[in-house]
Each structure stands twice: as structure tokens, then as C-alpha cells.
Design a protein around this nucleic acid. Structure first.
Length: 464
RNA sequence: UCCUCAGUAGCUCAACGGCAGAGCGACCGGCUGUUAACCGGUAGGUUGCAGGUUCGAAUCCUGCCUGGGGAGCCA
């Protein structure tokens, strides 16, 4: 007998009409009556379940089948029957239903609505629910779409190191990587821990960004991107932060901040189109049950240019609204979350690039503008999520970079190789960091980052 | 780390100083086309933990733990 996945059946039920097939899957719901019953079966290959109809008349083990609990794995074999008048387009009239793996009555996932908070506590079982099935299928598709976008444009995919010794960058708290005995580490004459006797002969940590290494590759391959895990030991407890997340960091040479924004905008638009085309079922589900205006909003974004304003203009715009903010809007202060949300959700009601921030509130590697007071930075703000992209044109002038590093108290000798990139054939270049989970949240309407990561790691939480 | 809200049956919640309850789930039974089926019944509790106030605490107070939301940090 032919074996079929639910994906294959849903794609082409007519091909299977009146044929015998076998399906394997997990019971989502089992409703029995006196002489017949219905099983909603999901095999993971498609968002939908397939309905298996079983009848006492045809099944020797009817009572056992009727007693199979939610979560049980089964094999069901029988005839595919088209049912155009019913709620589902087809069903399987079972000739055989066999238990592959039982699921006792204390299976935590019930055929009813569960809270996201509860499902986080059973993260090993939650992918079997509708919601997480959709989320993680879209996560997979989105990762593929990102590679496709860059590969189609000739970008080189760079595996930047996960363990690094760059602690000069200042992008958040670091997870230390060490093989030293925490109880009795080697001590220097000065009484401090002697990291020269650690595994790498120096302090090492998990990466907080692959940008510096990406710059090296951009200055060899022109256009590159990284896509990998990133680690921040920040004690931040919000729906938008995780200790382990994935980041995409394109870096492009012979390019300035405008090329950088064009790339970011093209990418976001490409990703939206990709999901609307390739994840219809899931996007419809999100639109219906997670975020009612999702599809309309995404479709509108595809058809409109993103707003582009400077930090200075943003400050003026915010002051013009006359809105009362908890934190005052003042040139020289960083934009607060409430300011960013106001800009993207109220003033423009679409994605907004904010550029040319004051030098003092941005990172050392950003290119200093003519005015000497601002740098060629760009943040992309989107409604609902806030900042999803942070990037800049990089400082390619060795002497200016030296000065910035001094201003930020960073020892340029520790980053000798980064300085070398300016010394040998350094050219203008730019790049940005895109939080993978942040854009996934934005594109699905899911409001908590812990619900778009298979097994999320956050402060005080490393179960599974 | 700060602010704030919450923790009661497997899940979602009610009871808000006086007998600890409902819906869903589970279990048992019924039902000839169900769709988070429906109908009847049964079981299920150290009210997050530790103290305190009171004749009496799920309820009030203190501390701690856990979770949600907001802020900061950022992607």
C-alpha cells in the first residue's frame, strides 16, 4: 500500500481519490460514537490534520482505536474519499488503525486552547500544537529565504567564529568561555586570574556579533553575510530579548549608508513576499488567530517605500507631535522605546530608517560624518516590535578610527587586525545586524521572542 | 536590575475574612457524520513556599520563589 504524507495528500487530494493509502501521525483529537468515530491526525508535514473515519463494521479493534488517547502515534490505512461538501476536502476511511506509540491520559496537550506561558513549560511537546507548528515551519522557511535572498545576489555566506576574544566591542555582556577551575583558577603575581593559562591563552567569550570578522571578508569578497547564533549575557527580561538568538549580518564593500539601507529594505520586502507566497496556510492562521491586521500590514509594506529620516529630523518630528513622553526628547539623548514606537506606529505607520545619530551614543566603528557630531548609523524601526535592524557605514579612515577608539576607551592594539583592514586596501563599506527572531516576530505577529525560539534561553531559564 | 500585576484541580479561571467551586481535560456510560462534537455521571485540592495578624486566612501583613507586562540594555 502506498504511503502518503499529509502534505502530499493536501497538495493533490484528487490524485489519491478512491485509492488506498497509509498515513503515520499523531492523534490530535479522537471522537468516537457507538459504531463510528473520527480521528484528527497530524503527521507534521503540513499544518492541517487529516480526518480518519473509522467504523465498528470494518475494524476488529474498534474499541481499542476508540480508546487511543490524544498524542498517540498511529498508522492508519484506508481509502481516500473526497468530501467537497464537508469542512475538510477529503478524509480517509480506515480499513486499519494500528497503535505505533501510546500516549497516556496525562498527556499535557489537550484539544483546547492553552496559554503560551503553559506551553513554554512543555517546550518539548509544544511543537505538536497548531500554533507552534506554524511558527516553526515559518521559522524554517524564513531562514531559507534569507539565504536565498543573499545567494541570489552573489553574497558569500561567512561562518564567523562563535568563540572569540574580542571583548572590545561593547555590544552587551559576555558569556565567558573558559576551561579554568572556577574554584582554584591560576593567579598572577598581581592577584588576578591568570588567563594566559586558560585554554586560548587569553580571555575568550561567546560571540556577541560577527561584524568585525564580516568586515574582513567583505574586504575580500565585496558582499558577504553571516547567519548564526549570537550570545548576550544581559540581565534583560523582556518579550524581545533572549540570551541566545540568531543574527544576520550582511557586510558590503564599496558601499555607503544609502546602499546599506537599500539592501535592508530590499531584504525585508523580499522576505515578506517569500512568506506570503510560500507559507500561505501559516500566514492565514497568524492573520486569523494571532494578529488580525497582519497580512494587510505586510502587503502594504511591500507596496510602499520605507520612511528615511535623520536622527535630527526624528527629534524635530517627535517634538512637533506635542505628545507627552516619560523621557524628554532632546538632541544628544538616545531615542527611547516610546519615541521609536511613536515614530513608526503613529507618525509614519510603517517601517522607518533613522540615520545619522549623535556620535556619543553609537559604537566606535561607525563612520564619522562631515559635521563631526554625528555618525553614519541606521536603525530600522517597525511597528509592534521596534528596532529590528541596527547598522552603519563603517569608519574606513585609519586615523579617524584610532581617535574614535581612544574616545571610547578601546585599545586599538587589541584590534590590530581590524586596523590592518584600514591599512591594506581599506575602502568604504557598510553593514547591519538583523535580529532573526525579531523579524520573525514582526512577520508572524507573535509578540514574545520565547515563542519563536524552539528552546529559548533567557535569564534563569535553560531547561530542555 | 527597577516598576507593576498575578500564582486556587491537569489547563483556563471564580470565590476576596466565615462549608474551596465552574468550564474544559481525564475516567465511566449514552449517541448513525463528528469538526476544540454533543448528553448524563465519577474522580480530582497541603489555594506557590515560609512566617505573622485573627475565634477563624485562598482572601489581610512580611519575606522569598516562579510567571506575565512595562522600563533600561539591545538585535
Amino acid at each position: 500500500m502506498e504511503y502518503a504524507t499529509v502534505r502530499e495528500l493536501v497538495a493533490n487530494p484528487e490524485n489519491y481519490a478512491d485509492k488506498q493509502v497509509a498515513v503515520y501521525g499523531w492523534i490530535r483529537n479522537n471522537r468516537d460514537q457507538k459504531s463510528f468515530g473520527f480521528i484528527a491526525l497530524n503527521d507534521g508535514t503540513h499544518f492541517n490534520t487529516v480526518q480518519v473515519v473509522y467504523e465498528r463494521e470494518f475494524l476488529e479493534n474498534y474499541d481499542q482505536v476508540a480508546a487511543m488517547g490524544v498524542g498517540s502515534a498511529i498508522r492508519a490505512a484506508g481509502k481516500v474519499v473526497l468530501t467537497p461538501e464537508a469542512r475538510q476536502p477529503f478524509e480517509i476511511k480506515a480499513a486499519e488503525v494500528n497503535l505505533e506509540g501510546a500516549s497516556p491520559a496525562d498527556y499535557p496537550i489537550q484539544p483546547k486552547r492553552h496559554s503560551r506561558e503553559f506551553l513554554r513549560e512543555v517546550a518539548h511537546l509544544r511543537p505538536r500544537t497548531n500554533f507552534f507548528n506554524a511558527v516553526f515551519r515559518v521559522r524554517s522557511l524564513l531562514a531559507f529565504a534569507i539565504h536565498r535572498f543573499f545567494q541570489e545576489r552573489g553574497f558569500i555566506y561567512l561562518h564567523s567564529p562563535i568563540i572569540t576574544a574580542n571583548d572590545a566591542e561593547g555590544a552587551g555582556e559576555l558569556f565567558r568561555v573558559t576551561t579554568l577551575d572556577p574554584k582554584e583558577p591560576p593567579i598572577t603575581d598581581a592577584g588576578t586570574v591568570d588567563y594566559s593559562r586558560d585554554f586560548f591563552g587569553k580571555r575568550a567569550n561567546l560571540t556577541v556579533s560577527g561584524q568585525l570578522e564580516a568586515e574582513a571578508f567583505a574586504l575580500a569578497f565585496k558582499d558577504v553575510y553571516t547567519f548564526g547564533p549570537t550570545f548576550r549575557a544581559e540581565n534583560s527580561n523582556t518579550p524581545r530579548h533572549a540570551a541566545e538568538f540568531w543574527m544576520i549580518e550582511p557586510e558590503i564593500a564599496f558601499a555607503d549608508i544609502n546602499d546599506n539601507m537599500d539592501l535592508a529594505e530590499d531584504m525585508v520586502r523580499y522576505l515578506i513576499n517569500y512568506l506570503l507566497e510560500n507559507a500561505k496556510t501559516e500566514m492565514d492562521f497568524f492573520n486569523q488567530f494571532v494578529d488580525k491586521g497582519l497580512k494587510e500590514r505586510l502587503e502594504q509594506i511591500v507596496n510602499s517605500k520605507f520612511a528615511r529620516i535623520t536622527y535630527t529630523e526624528a527629534v524635530e518630528q517627535l517634538q512637533k507631535t506635542g505628545q507627552k513622553f516619560e523621557y524628554p526628547v532632546e538632541w544628544g539623548r538616545d531615542l527611547q522605546t516610546e519615541h521609536e514606537r511613536c515614530l513608526t506606529e503613529k507618525v509614519y505607520q510603517k517601517p522607518v530608517f533613522v540615520t545619522d545619530y549623535p556620535r556619543s551614543i553609537k559604537a566606535f566603528y561607525m563612520r564619522v560624518n562631515h559635521d563631526q557630531n554625528t555618525v553614519a548609523a541606521m536603525d530600522l524601526l517597525v511597528p509592534g516590535v521596534g528596532e529590528i535592524i541596527g547598522g552603519s557605514q563603517r569608519e574606513e579612515r585609519a586615523e579617524v578610527l584610532e581617535q574614535s577608539m581612544a574616545d571610547f576607551n578601546i585599545n586599538s592594539e587589541d584590534l590590530w587586525w581590524y586596523m590592518d583592514l584600514r591599512k591594506y586596501g581599506g575602502v568604504k563599506h557598510a553593514g547591519f545586524g538583523l535580529g532573526f527572531e525579531r523579524i520573525l516576530m514582526y512577520l508572524t505577529g507573535v509578540s514574545n521572542i520565547r515563542d519563536v525560539i524552539p528552546f529559548p534561553r533567557t535569564v534563569n531559564s535553560c531547561e530542555f
